[in-house]
């Protein structure tokens, strides 16, 4: 089992954090994992992306050019990564702010209205957790329990009162995928 995942969007949307929680979830499940971020000025507002590789065997390259799953949060990232999804792979995207919809027919395309749902839930910080929920529902490499355990590791203890809200957002995201 090996899953190569890219999460891409604007800096500030929680792209790197989403990848980090996913990586910790894999760690909780005793899987091998690498987390490779784009680093630099994009963290402060440009496009940001992170590649997470999860496997039950030793991982050679943390950098790959095709992906099993892409989670896309803006138009630039869609333009860049739509064609990097392997045939038969999964593309999850938030249609909010997207003016050119994905066109591939050989992959599973899953629109997730995370921004709308975030506004409805009234908590801006739940955005990336909704998408993470959608991701683990569409590609169940790691379990909800592992994600929640991972989240506990990533969040500093002073923020642990936010765990229930995050869990709620995660479950909401799962509901958005058939």
């Amino acid at each position: 089992m090996k899953q190569e995942i890219i999460i891409a969007g604007f800096g500030g949307q929680g792209v790197l954090s989403m990848g980090k929680i996913l990586a910790y979830a894999a760690l909780m499940d005793n899987l091998e994992v690498t987390w490779m971020p784009s680093y630099g000025p994009e963290q402060r507002g440009g496009t940001a992306n992170v590649t997470v590789v999860i496997s039950d065997q030793e991982i050679s390259s943390p950098i790959v050019d095709t992906f099993d799953v892409a989670v896309i949060l803006n138009q630039q990232s869609l333009d860049k990564f739509e064609h990097a999804v392997r045939p038969g792979g999964i593309l999850i995207f938030d249609p909010y702010g997207i003016h050119r919809m994905p066109e591939r027919t050989d992959i599973r395309i899953i629109p997730v209205n995370a921004m709308d749902k975030t506004i409805e839930m009234g908590n801006a910080k739940s955005y990336n957790m909704i998408l993470l929920g959608a991701l683990i529902k569409a590609a169940p490499t790691v379990s909800v329990d592992d994600v929640l355990k991972g989240l506990k590791k990533v969040l500093p203890e002073r923020h642990h009162h936010l765990l229930p809200a995050n869990e709620q957002a995660l479950l909401k995201g799962m509901e958005l995928v058939d």
Binding site: K20, A23, L27, E32, V33, T34, W35, M36, P37, Y39, P62, I63
Partner: peptide
Amino acid sequence: DGVVGQMMEK
């Protein structure tokens, strides 16, 4: 290098 410095791994 920047890859091994910035990447997370077990």
